[in-house]
Design a binder for these strands. Structure first.
Lengths: 337, 337
DNA sequence: GCTCCCACTGGAAGCGCTTCCAGTAGCACT
DNA sequence: AGTGCTACTGGAAGCGCTTCCAGTGGGAGC
């Protein structure tokens, strides 16, 4: 239907002229705003189609002071944090929700100094209508930036040592407690944990859940055996646990990767799973299903985290005041425990 | 150093006034452009710092007609395509390269109709300075959009049935050939392949490489046994192959996920790897290293793909004319072959 | 037939920046 | 002193859109 092929992209002025209306009317017609007669609305529609007009988002952004974009900022030293399937899922959820609100997604990695500087600029220049923040570390400089920000900020997970105004998290304590209770219910009494990095809130929370469950059952919790959420670190931690507590009969790993690593070490050590040692993971990623034996684990609604973060941000951008969200987890029993 | 705390963000006008210069001079000073005396340059610097001035990127974008953003568009029905660690790595590489060029990254998923419409709008409205396109299918509507686009477009991998003007790909044919040759060199003569989706160029290319190597060795290539790049599909394909060709002694899987699935099926079928059946994968993802036995595979520089795509795009945005890139692969020998 | 009201209209003023261009000043040379 | 530079300078015109506001006309009500 686009008939003319102008070298320059048509502007609203040209649409207005072709439609025989003023630019104001054309603008209003375009945005389904009131105060435009039926006839002119139609004329504008025609002109738009004839010229193949598409509004210039930059100009619109300048006039409305809304960029039409939300930023997802991922902190952390290691850029390969993205490789974590966890993030991929959050991303998918967030993208879906932003699509509904017709916002774009700007992805930022605050790993290098340069990266952090760019994020700071994003905050200070209002280069996005709002920001979703993930994977903050203890004393993360992003925390300060978020505090000083003049636009809405939603946290994914809680940062260490602070409860932000708006966040979406999963019930890490509850999930870890349920996992540990499951081990105890299966008759295990010498249950250890491979916990995640204790400089993250998720690492701490899952250890807390383990500890709570042990104490509640009158058992003695072991001190944290720390891993960094990778398969390799899980294997190493398991080896350390076996060395220090040869008699253990249950392990709660703070995520599936480490759980899989633990399985590997146990297999190599000749311990049968679950007969000798029962293992429970956390996350319910693909690796849990494929592990040998398939890993009993705590399912968390990862896409929902992304989706709810985005929805919360959209609500904030629209001037609402949503409440923080803690999503429930659910134990998925497979063969390892 | 920011002394005044204005409710409104300061504008360039205010900076200029405080520095005692005109807005033009202030603008030039800010952008390190010529025709500004040393003294005024310094005065502007001072004013910027005193006011805590940060330029408004939207206004700049409108004036320069450059958005300062590159888009990464991922096609495909299934949003969980992101969960593929492959994409995560590409993303990391692209982000790093864009950071160098001081461009932002807008991530778009063209999975739903709505998503595709938004991408089309992005193209037509020039909502980005350039676009990186990935995971196109046969007759993908994105191909047409890319052709009609008025901004630079770089392809990641090649679409089926067309060679785009600018793309970054890995040497899929060569890698697959090398993998198959490795099996043949190990004395395997009844080598099958679990190929990827044949409606993607990567699926076809890897099958072609397998076929070439077989023919070159005077062996008869088997018809493609298709999977969809998932572990599950690899396991199923392996089962089908065992049923149809019980005597096979080698398998080239078109990616590591399917290779791992094949290992699972072989283990279940009581075939020893590599003694009875040797297996080679493709990608060299984490799963290959962790597989049992560790998977011999074709390494491809995934981050480099993202990095080079972004660099190529930056070059195009800067008016250069880069040449397409095909990155080399490399066989990584582990225990499975 | 006259007033009043209201839906609609379009001119104009922005949004905050870049950049063209017509100057202006200062300086070294004739 | 006059010329021709070079190096800066700042006014002004955009970039393409939204939105305020002062009309304008036509219909309803009396």
């Amino acid at each position: 239907m686009a008939e003319d092929v102008p070298r320059r992209r048509p502007t609203l002025d040209e649409v207005a002229e072709l439609a025989g209306v003023s630019r104001s009317v054309a603008s209003r017609a375009l945005n389904d705003a009131p105060h435009v007669s039926r006839a002119k609305r139609e004329a504008v529609r025609q002109a738009v189609r004839r010229l193949g007009y598409v509004p210039n988002p930059t100009a619109r952004a300048l006039a409305t002071r809304q960029t039409g974009a939300a930023a997802l900022v991922v902190s952390g030293e290691d850029p390969s944090i993205f490789a974590d399937p966890f993030f991929a899922q959050v991303l998918v959820g967030a993208l879906a929700a932003l699509e509904e609100a017709d916002l774009h997604l700007t992805l930022c990695l605050a790993a290098s100094d340069r990266g952090r500087k760019r994020v700071e600029e994003l905050f200070r220049s209002r280069g996005a209508d709002g920001v979703m923040l993930m994977a903050l570390r203890e004393n993360d400089p992003l925390t300060r930036m978020a505090e000083e920000a003049t636009m809405p900020v939603v946290f994914g997970g809680r940062p260490v040592g602070a409860v932000p105004r708006w966040f979406v998290d999963v019930d890490n304590v509850g999930g870890a407690r349920e996992a540990t209770e499951h081990l105890i219910a299966r008759g295990r009494t010498r249950v250890a944990t491979i916990c995640g990095r204790l400089d993250t809130e998720v690492g701490r929370a899952r250890y807390r859940g383990y500890r709570d469950a042990m104490l509640a059952a009158g058992l003695e919790p072991l001190p944290p055996q720390e891993g960094d959420f990778t398969e390799r670190s899980g294997a190493a931690a398991m080896a350390a646990l076996l060395a220090g507590h040869p008699g253990l009969d249950g392990v709660f790993a703070a995520n599936d990767n480490m759980g899989a690593g633990a399985l590997r070490t146990l297999r190599a050590a000749g311990r049968a799973v679950p007969a000798d040692v029962a293992v429970v993971g956390f996350d319910d990623l693909a690796v849990a299903e494929v592990a040998d034996p398939p890993l009993t684990t705590v399912h968390q609604p990862i896409q929902a985290v992304g989706r709810e973060m985005a929805r919360m941000l959209v609500a904030l951008v629209n001037g609402e005041d949503p409440t923080p969200l803690i999503l429930p987890t659910r134990l998925v029993v497979r063969s390892s425990a």
